[in-house]
Design a binder for these strands. Structure first.
Lengths: 165, 165
DNA sequence: CATAACGTTCAGAATGGAGTGAACGAAAAT
DNA sequence: ATTTTCGTTCACTCCATTCTGAACGTTATG
């Protein structure tokens, strides 16, 4: 209902089918990235439809409880992947993709890697010089995460200058 | 026991403490990356100790069942993060970090991103031109994953040329 | 040959996180 | 003022994955 459903006349329910497939796929995909499945489905809905979706419609169309929508949108909001917006004349909350949703998505990953590197560095500092072997190996391990963090930050930067949503 | 335990005389059990902390931390860290906790603890053990560890010692020191060790080392072996090696005169299997454990770790992530991008591209191909808006948005979404894949591959390459373990 | 040590497998227990839905407070509508 | 409509919260259920441990085949060892 919140989609373009009956707009075209050429592809009847074919598109609705593709849309649902897509939403479901993204749901399981992001699940493998540490997000709850519903968060992925919400995101996929917004990506596909391209227009703001209401709280109620999300719950109804995805056939999940409002409680689930509440926690999933909060998660996505906190990471600045989606934004909560108002629609004049409607009491419901609406949601749309954040300006730089993808950039933030990448930067979230970058930050996670950075934190991991820092955590290893912490252990490293506690470790006396005498343990030169372990010291060197942990340093390499920390570098590994730092390298990832830098690479992802660069990717985010590239994405940002592309100016894409 | 498989560690450097009683080697130094300055830091008695202090180091053993740091070591255990480290192993446990990495365990939960990699858990957040989709690996079982025990796999992380095995990896951390090998990183810290820097020498091959026997199947039996791993089970004993980490205080987990041999079944768990079996499945965790297999997982790490499959991704070429660790190698199974033989120790002359010992029937047990031994494990050590793979030559380019970190490189492979990154490339695993890169591949996951690449797959994600491809999966979106699949949906994209099914979607008729008429849906130009959705088409464009999905394309951006696919690019997002491709961008990550490239960034991680680059990071892997840099890591490789650094020649670090 | 018999016994022991090794690693794997598989069914079941344990664990953790996701999703549900009723209860709630707030805000609008009537 | 009363009744809806909203979104959030929280205790509970449900589900997936991890981990365990006994059974097993295999290979060495006595």
């Amino acid at each position: 209902m919140a989609t373009q459903g009956q707009a075209g006349m050429d592809e009847p329910d074919d598109i609705a089918q593709i849309r649902e497939d897509f939403i479901e796929r993204i749901g399981v995909m992001v699940q493998g990235e540490g997000f709850p499945r519903i968060a992925g489905r919400v995101l996929a809905t917004l990506v596909f439809d391209g227009e703001r979706a209401s709280f109620g419609d999300l719950a109804e169309n995805l056939a999940v409880s409002r409680g689930s929508i509440s926690s999933s949108v909060r998660l996505l909001e906190d990471r600045e992947i989606i934004r909560r917006v108002a629609k004049p004349g409607d009491r419901q909350d609406y949601f749309e993709m954040s300006e730089d949703a993808f950039v933030n998505l990448i930067e979230n990953s970058a930050n996670r890697a950075r934190r991991a590197g820092k955590e290893i560095a912490t252990t490293l500092n506690r470790l006396p010089q005498s343990q030169s072997g372990a010291h060197a190996r942990l340093a390499t391990y920390a570098d590994f995460y730092d390298e990832i963090a830098v690479a992802l930050s660069d990717a985010a930067e590239r994405m940002r200058h592309r100016g894409q949503a």
